[in-house]
Design a protein around this nucleic acid. Sequence first.
DNA 1: GATGAATGAGGCTTCATTCAT
DNA 2: AATGAATGAAGCCTCATTCAT
Lengths: 218, 218, 218, 218
Amino acid sequence: MSSTNLLDNIIAQLKLSKKETSKQQKILETAIAMFAEKGYANTSTSEIAKAAGVAEGTIFRHYGTKENLLLSVILPFLKESVPVFAREVIDEFSPQNFSSFEDFLRALIRNRMSFIRENREIFQIVIKEFLYHEELRRELIPLFKNNVLSFINKNLDLYKQRGDIADIPNGTLMKMLFTFIGSYFSVRFILTDEEDSLNDEGEIEDLIRFIMKGVGNE
Amino acid sequence: MSSTNLLDNIIAQLKLSKKETSKQQKILETAIAMFAEKGYANTSTSEIAKAAGVAEGTIFRHYGTKENLLLSVILPFLKESVPVFAREVIDEFSPQNFSSFEDFLRALIRNRMSFIRENREIFQIVIKEFLYHEELRRELIPLFKNNVLSFINKNLDLYKQRGDIADIPNGTLMKMLFTFIGSYFSVRFILTDEEDSLNDEGEIEDLIRFIMKGVGNE
Amino acid sequence: MSSTNLLDNIIAQLKLSKKETSKQQKILETAIAMFAEKGYANTSTSEIAKAAGVAEGTIFRHYGTKENLLLSVILPFLKESVPVFAREVIDEFSPQNFSSFEDFLRALIRNRMSFIRENREIFQIVIKEFLYHEELRRELIPLFKNNVLSFINKNLDLYKQRGDIADIPNGTLMKMLFTFIGSYFSVRFILTDEEDSLNDEGEIEDLIRFIMKGVGNE
Amino acid sequence: MSSTNLLDNIIAQLKLSKKETSKQQKILETAIAMFAEKGYANTSTSEIAKAAGVAEGTIFRHYGTKENLLLSVILPFLKESVPVFAREVIDEFSPQNFSSFEDFLRALIRNRMSFIRENREIFQIVIKEFLYHEELRRELIPLFKNNVLSFINKNLDLYKQRGDIADIPNGTLMKMLFTFIGSYFSVRFILTDEEDSLNDEGEIEDLIRFIMKGVGNE
DNA sequence: GATGAATGAGGCTTCATTCAT
DNA sequence: AATGAATGAAGCCTCATTCAT
């Protein structure tokens, strides 16, 4: 991961990937599976090529560098998960659609959970590389803040007015909410074996209960 | 990270490190700083040697392999943080010392926070490598469960009897507590720049408030 | 030289080497010359690469490990010298083709001598590494016994019936014959300078005379 | 093995090794065992030091270089086996002591065999390194020729006069004799497992019979 | 004399990347 | 577009040797 501007790479990348051949598809699928399983640094391009059934040169013909292959894996996911997430939240999750903050929370968590479940491998990659690469963090955190947080920020005020949530500063609220929900997803989809998590619905309710009321006795 | 038993490595390792040269100290310090900054996989032994001002061979004379160097960095931390943590919790944090679960929680978080602050870099390494190496997880999670959780488990019952915490199954309670506290520390010490976190005391109170009461309006 | 089954390596190896680049050829030729001259352990891959005019990486692209390069040198030779030797002996050297055991011996020695002369360097490598690597011996000796000795064993009986050779147990006979012929070849092709051995024909006759009649006065 | 004159090294070496401490003895014993088992090139000085229970520096204090340690192992053996062999042959094996060449041969083989059996490991080292190092050959072969062969040469004439051995040129005779006896010892003491060779006496008689009469039917 | 920490050259190997076909 | 042989920098590690204690 070089220090060049990530957003420039995003733009350049998106221009390149207009049309995808079947070989490109196969390369991407294989790269996703292997990066998720062994991590970016521990996966070699020759392994990917062999597993994808293409020549090593073909990878470089399409993606130029290994880093760019990683971006080609991550960026569509982020494109989907950040701005579309933002729009979805705005469109579907506006307060008038929900009778309570708890309902909003439930819908939000279920929505994101099913999205991540379908993209579990890429989610693993993003989280892992996010920890490893400071520049990635430097780029993505503002992107996230600008797109999502401002909207949530506004809505929190509405729920506060309704009396659904306590009078805690929005900054603190959001930090708590995202830390906890984000880490819940991370534990759920990275550290937990699939067979250990049969009762997602029950867990989501536990999670919501915790977020709403904490552990204390009212 | 081989598939050999980690605990055996721990024992072997601790026996080896009877006395430490000043060069050994320097190697360890440098390795900690670099592993924390760039990650284990992205740090080469020659970089460490150069930064530590020793010959590369010196690293291998003392630690044998790069992996063993990583273990030599991590294990003393884990030795301190897991069983000593367990003992501390048992000795200092037994329910009779605290007027409420909230006080217990406050003491626990402050105690761990100051320990991690003093070992911030190693904490970063452990978290990062924990994500990357499944075997490390396979070894450490039971170690943690056996040493710490059984004790907490017992105490939770006491606090429930006192009426401090809600009647939620202990398994659920602990999962929530550790996910949230663990991820709070991770965000605090890995993702947050030092200058962004001047108000730890305030944050800890926010955290405790959240854990106890959630975000809902009582 | 690992402890894995050599014959498996043979098979795997032969499957790999379908087509050979000119660079591969050059690497093999150079490796043969250098292993023969200085021994396997004293020849570095970087030396081979430099002498062959290729990058060091090229060696590993084709042969994977240094040990596998050694096998790639040795195995085709063994394939030629052991089973083909066996077939040749069976086809061309069956008793009915020879008026006497002495004639048989003369043909056999000349045949093997010209084969080894053409593969002198590889023969040197095999003998040297044979001494150094017990597993190589463990694999090759049975291979040789099964392919060659059983045939010779049978023929010895025929020559005994004809009265060509003395009534010595076949086991003893073969041990003597192979020790002496093998060591003659070893001395001739490893210890002797080329210029010291201008009179091969004469030497072969001396050798045969010795084998047939010993040094005693009849 | 550098290209410096070996005989000079011998002399220098012998001057050094006047008095041997117990540590030196232990180092030599260990080096002999390990060189014989794994070969000179595959044995590291640190292994020797560890197995001998001394510090690695101690080896270099006494022997200067690893090569010199090898010479210190080999040379006393050669000193014993070459000139003493020569003297012994001259003193004990002069023709008047034996009724026949066959008896002489039997005594010679038994004598050398028991010497090598007692020094089996060093013999292995000498043979192996002899194959690997041309300079060693260049030095030792003349040494042997000058000390031993001239005497044997003379005696062969006597046995020929007695009619014990056939009228073959001495050069040819000696080449055959030494090739065969030497290789018999090599096979016997390097390639053969100890348990496979219980019947030395019988084997020696086979060997003598072969040398005297060959395999032919008289 | 003995030690063992330290060295640094060199060994084998991996890998992202290039390029002729 | 696709291939895969070739590259060479860099990685981890070994080892004979030196030297301060």
